[in-house]
Design a protein around this nucleic acid. Structure first.
Lengths: 362, 362
DNA sequence: ACAGCAAATGGAAACGTTTCCAAACCACGA
DNA sequence: TCGTGGTTTGGAAACGTTTCCATTTGCTGT
């Protein structure tokens, strides 16, 4: 019960009958020491169950061996997987990850970054609402804290592990065009706080134009609308002319299918749907989801590796976008040919078979 | 370019023309100071862009304001959500979360815990392979580092935020029995490294016995088998007598459906399937998954709140299990009556409607 | 004008490390 | 016997805080 709560290197030194400097040298295998002292120190350390205090070390060496990680939410598997990948990569090199999420809130982003910087993180891995003018992110730069973004399209000043949102979205537009769709929609959640979503829309719209399609309809919905199929169905009904919907992420795309079912529309005959991200469950659906397949874990790994270069004092190179794949699912087909009084949901012959090959792009 | 890299309280004191003690008092709003000095110090701090170093503070106060979090993997949304909940709860009180995952490996568990302890975490949130005899977890106890488990059924020595795995599993057995199933199977992944999974099986088996059902078949599969529908289908074929399968998590349950489809079996007529966890996507499937619905985020929150009590020096009480719900989906029904040469997959009249009410239990 | 007291202040120690530096020690050849 | 040069060794400073404690300052009331 009279346990001193912490065993320090001084305790070890005393037990071994030597100075702390010597103990430190032995335990770190730096500098020289006679084999007898070495033995005594090691024995003492073992007996006492000594372990270095990372705090003491951090203070003296000005290296915390800690990386800060800011993301919108761990409840989104895309971010969670990225963190998982980054964490594994960093741990190999002895770094720990300080993780915090902002819930898609710009102010919280800054608060968190400030806290992380105060914690003396050696580096930063960041996905946030508005990196371009975050005071805290600038402060990180001023303090020379290596920083790598994740998911964001390239931004001046920071490397970013990402997939080209615009190019991926363009691929979707091309697919739609190839299947003969003309009136398309882009379904967005949190459009205001996600540059990813905005960039997807921009890329999608641009390619629609290039393909001589009418401009896509932008449909913004709230979290509640996304989670309530009946309401979502209502929103979709406001756009009866659309034959294909590009959802800004897979969950949304699945929700659209659900909503469509509710109205008796058949996917894909009555409405084609394509998602974004390529989450695993999309594959397991009865009607596997057509989607842009990305690899968030690889993204996290890449970000971590780049950061490691920065942490070792190197120059962090601008990153080339990670490849994406168009996953051919069963939710994209030719639109049914519609007559003006066409009744959606009527029996329908099978659609043309989907294109057989996937496209990989970098 | 000649920037001193870090601004310390000494710099502030010098700029304000006072001692560091005074500066510290002002900036911390502790102790007294004349309004002029107060003003000068605050001005100086603002001008210099001063921020406290958490490391220095941690060293002197022996509080790192950091909590360590160990989980099997962030790639599993159940854990990711728990971390999310815990993180939010802890941040409110000024704590940051140091997150690491072990990939379901017991040795890694211990390595990580050791590292976290070295980092002087003030508390620990843990889900691991084998908490009962982890040297590192004992060390945490010896060092008086408050620790709360997550997901684990109660264990002597540590509080645990959890759902009663056995009771939840028993509920599944009762549902199976009520629908007239007799030959059932329990599909397990990582049985060896998950006490949760084992406890579910035990509870399931016990209640099968109580309901006079034959002992359930334990079917262990590997990750690869789980991810490859065709192989999984093969495994299922080895047990043609089973009419209902309880999968140890929802992903597995979805995989079973997929595999069943592949063989032309109809779910639930030919094979009923129930999952565990209650992940969101289960709801969005064409055939919504029947499952035990749990609330991982709430679990993370509860664990964090308990831990906070411990962090404030209080006694951490044993936690009562969190409630779970049996989610009535569309994957559980009466088994089709089988004749010996019955051809599974033949056309079939609709099953009886599912029970209408959910059950909530704590 | 002065004792007495509260408010304000700053020096110094401590937290646990690492590392610089000077001192002590050793064996060896001259 | 004594330098010489290398190996071991430990004291002390530094990293950025907070806090104890002693000192100084400024008033109050008599």
């Amino acid at each position: 019960m009279a346990n001193k709560t912490r065993i320090t290197i001084k305790d070890v030194a005393r037990a071994a009958g030597c100075g702390v400097a010597t103990a430190s040298r032995v335990l770190n295998k730096s500098g020289s020491a006679s084999s007898e002292t070495r033995e005594r120190v090691e024995q003492a350390a073992r007996d006492l169950g000594f372990a270095f205090s990372a705090t003491g070390r951090a203070l003296q060496s000005r290296k915390s061996m800690t990386v800060g990680c800011l993301i919108p939410s761990l409840a989104n598997p895309v971010f969670a997987e990225a963190v998982q990948g980054a964490q594994e990569e960093l741990r190999k090199e002895g770094y720990q990850l300080l993780v915090a999420s902002s819930n898609y809130d710009g102010e919280t982003d800054n608060e968190i970054l400030t806290t992380l910087l105060a914690k003396d993180v050696d580096g930063l891995l960041v996905t946030m609402v508005d990196p371009q003018d975050s005071s805290a992110l600038n402060m990180a730069q001023g303090r020379n804290v290596p920083t790598c973004l994740m998911f964001h399209d390239p931004l001046p000043g920071w490397p970013s592990a990402h997939v080209s949102n615009a190019e991926a979205a363009a691929e979707v537009a091309r697919r739609f065009a190839r299947y003969g769709h003309r009136r398309t929609g882009f379904l967005a959640l949190r459009f205001a706080t996600s540059d990813r979503s905005r960039n997807r829309f921009d890329g999608f719209r641009a390619e629609c134009a290039a393909q001589n399609l009418p401009a896509p309809e932008l449909i913004e919905i709230t979290e509640t609308e996304a989670n309530t199929p009946s309401i979502l169905a209502q929103r979709l009904c406001e756009h009866p002319e659309l034959t294909a919907i590009f959802a800004s992420n897979d969950f949304l795309a699945i929700a659209v299918q659900k909503a469509a079912n509710l109205m008796g529309w058949h996917v894909p005959q009555d409405l084609s749907v394509v998602g974004f991200d390529g989450i695993e469950v999309g594959r397991l659906l009865d009607r596997p989801l057509a989607t842009i397949e990305t690899t968030p874990e690889a993204m996290g790994r890449q970000a971590a590796q780049t950061l490691l270069v920065g942490l070792q004092g190197g120059e962090m190179a601008e990153l080339t976008p990670l490849p994406f794949t168009f996953r051919v699912g069963a939710t994209l087909s030719t639109p049914r040919t519609k007559s003006p009084d066409d009744d959606r949901g009527a029996a329908q012959s099978p659609s043309v078979p989907p294109l057989t090959s996937n496209v990989k792009q970098g």
